[in-house]
Design a binder for these strands. Sequence first.
DNA 1: GTGGTCTAGACCACC
DNA 2: GTGGTCTAGACCACA
Lengths: 127, 127, 127, 127
Amino acid sequence: MISINDKSDVPIYEQIKEGLRGLMARKILLPGDQVPPIRGLAETLVVNPNTIAKAYRELILEGFLESRKGEGAFVAARAGNKASNGMKSVRQRLIDSVQLSRRAGLSWKDIQAALEQAKEEEGGNGE
Amino acid sequence: MISINDKSDVPIYEQIKEGLRGLMARKILLPGDQVPPIRGLAETLVVNPNTIAKAYRELILEGFLESRKGEGAFVAARAGNKASNGMKSVRQRLIDSVQLSRRAGLSWKDIQAALEQAKEEEGGNGE
Amino acid sequence: MISINDKSDVPIYEQIKEGLRGLMARKILLPGDQVPPIRGLAETLVVNPNTIAKAYRELILEGFLESRKGEGAFVAARAGNKASNGMKSVRQRLIDSVQLSRRAGLSWKDIQAALEQAKEEEGGNGE
Amino acid sequence: MISINDKSDVPIYEQIKEGLRGLMARKILLPGDQVPPIRGLAETLVVNPNTIAKAYRELILEGFLESRKGEGAFVAARAGNKASNGMKSVRQRLIDSVQLSRRAGLSWKDIQAALEQAKEEEGGNGE
DNA sequence: GTGGTCTAGACCACC
DNA sequence: GTGGTCTAGACCACA
């Protein structure tokens, strides 16, 4: 459902937030759906439960999730639309990353090639 | 020679390291060449000399540079090859970044658009 | 745990690095063990936290330590073996130093006497 | 006549000074003897002539050498006796080095063994 | 002039 | 609380 790259310099809790937002934006997680319990997700992702808790807490503050005591956390009503907004930072980070690669000497051709490689590694299905 | 984006969340000293490694990989800086003096580079990049020193020191530890006290820092013998290898990791990081964006819900079209934006922000001259 | 001689011309951060590597090589610090927090160690050794941070950072780059943000720094998996190897270089440096003393005209007797003096200054407990 | 270890962290000019002082103390260089010309010694040791010049300059200031314009530098009258005094710093450095090794985890036995090894590498003739 | 070390103190991110 | 980055400025060693 969500995958983590713990070698990335992107904080784990951010990766989780973005993973969940992505699932919402792509309508895989729909309003009203329950998101995985903190403990369970922490176990499957092998991260500290506090880290999951932080991700959920922020998503709640940002209005993507709602928590119901004793039941768990659920996707909020208009989360799908909002999720597209939160995506700006993801985009900016990607741009930063490209610019860093440029400064490190990669040509645009190299970068395009890397992009193709990422596409292939994923399974090659365009979207 | 090297450019810095101090708004990026990539540490300045890392940007400097990668910039220099890029110049080595592209054979613009050749073994034996002197790299700019710490204080001078600090002045042109408008950063603290310690930050440059940190970058240089790590490049020395990694074998890309050699320093001769009182003389300056110089590109090490096999720095070019090592830098080319290091380039692979830069590339890998870019791929990681793209994959992370995908997981966060960006479409390939979004990613391509972000790439174009990065190109424009840079000045638009393809390579 | 670690002792510092700030009158030595060996940099403090180097003394700290070697002290820690020694503890690893002697299996007093085992893989997974947490090393003292930067600020705490800085306080007990009466040095600037940056100096400790520099030592830790280099040990991380060399693969002896791992750091987890917000948690602390920990002894890396195969640190013990690496440290034992590193010990060789310590030994070699000692040999270099002895040979330098010889070239400077010290007799073997002088050198032996110096060794005894070092032993006494330490507290005299053989090992 | 003199050998240099450019991997040592002892400055080259110090190694040269100590080498010369050692030759004086051991009566190999006698008062009135001419020491090698700066250029020649720089060439044989493969170091910067400035470095030799610095060593000579300091030895002159310390009274070990005398320079005669147009002729070269010569061992001063009572250099032999004085040389033994200069040896204190050499000794101290050796002690520092031993203490550093101790802090790095070497046992006294290790250190004694290293000493033996240095002796053997030299040729084994006690003095 | 060069690089190397150290201090003091700030601010940030993460847990 | 933890480590990470950066600044400002000092002092030293070397060429």
